[in-house]
Simulated scan of single mutants.
Amino acid sequence: MLSPVFLAHGSPFTIFEQSEFTQFLRHFGQQHRPKAIVIFSAHFENEITTIAPTDGVHEMVYDYYGFPDSFYQVQYPARGSMIVASIIEERLKKHRIPVQTHYRGLDHGVFPIMMHAYPEADIPIVPVSVNPFLSARQQIAIGEALQGLEQEGILVIGSGFISHNFNEFDRNKDAPPREWAIEFRDWIREKALARDIEALSQYATLAPHAMRAVPRAEHFVPLLIAMGSGDPNGNPRILFDTIEHGSGTTFSIQF
């Protein structure tokens, strides 16, 4: 089933990591074999929704700092798809969503998870930007413009974290989950499973500890886009869900 998904993208360490999370990603890739992937990465920001078109092999965007040299030598030679990029552009324009095209390669919201899910790099990938300053309802509307793409064999992925606050991360990956992070995660989980768009559109004021969990929305809005792109009558299901480093969630869900 190619229904849209929100995936936690992990840290750059995910590239070389062997863990329960990377095992989940491998299993996900084995179960889902789309003709192409459209991915909204938290690390690709633009004021106007921007599609990165190419038919060539994607460039690598090493948008992280202070890692060993091996992290800057990683290659993931997936190609893009001009045809799929055109489909996305046409859909967004039809729904009167401002859109532009400008090439950008694969950042660490994309290639670390794709390397585990699709190690052969044989599925075309079309990156699309996010704008964290749009309202939650506008984020959902972007997703709604893409409803039904699974019928054409295209998988929509939102890549981010529902809780992303570096000031709250514990260096110890196995640190006990903090109570506020659990309460926030549980609220998001409940509303996402119920496809409660009204509540999630107001998560910043309704969800417990929202400002602590989401001090800046770029990692959260891919969830809203993925949810909007799913079947309104579908049954969301949790794919993976743990809390690491005290407050960082791997919450991943299919719509």
Rank of each mutant, 00 (worst) to 15 (best):
D107T: 07
M1V: 14
F71Q: 05
G66W: 14
E198L: 15
A85W: 04
M115C: 12
F71K: 10
A136P: 10
H95T: 14
G153Y: 08
E90L: 14
T249N: 09
L206P: 01
S201M: 12
M227F: 09
E47V: 13
H209D: 04
M211F: 13
G148V: 12
N235W: 06
S70K: 08
A226E: 01
F6C: 03
F251L: 10
V84K: 01
V84G: 00
I243H: 01
L200G: 00
V57Q: 14
H108P: 00
I51V: 15
F6D: 01
L223Q: 02
A136K: 06
G153L: 10
P222A: 10
S70G: 05
P112Q: 07
L2G: 01
G143T: 10
S3N: 07
V5T: 04
I154M: 01
V221Q: 03
V5W: 00
M60P: 07
S70V: 06
M227Q: 02
S201I: 08
A85P: 03
P34G: 10
Q147E: 07
S229L: 09
A207H: 04
F28I: 08
I238E: 11
E218Q: 14
F21D: 06
F255Y: 15
H108S: 02
H27C: 09
Q18G: 01
Q31I: 08
R171K: 13
I113W: 11
P127G: 02
F21K: 09
H164G: 04
P222C: 00
P12M: 13
F67G: 05
I157L: 08
G228M: 09
Y72M: 06
E89Y: 12
I39S: 03
P4G: 05
G230D: 05
G160D: 01
V74T: 05
R195Q: 13
Q147A: 14
H116R: 11
S163K: 00
S252Q: 07
I253C: 02
A52R: 03
S247D: 03
E152N: 15
V126K: 11
S3T: 15
I51N: 02
M82L: 11
G246I: 04
I157R: 00
E20K: 05
G66N: 15
I243R: 04
Y65V: 15
Q31R: 11
A136V: 05
F13C: 09
H43S: 06
A207D: 05
E168N: 01
S81K: 05
I225E: 04
Y65N: 13
D241H: 04
S247P: 02
M115T: 13
V128I: 14
S3H: 09
A226S: 08
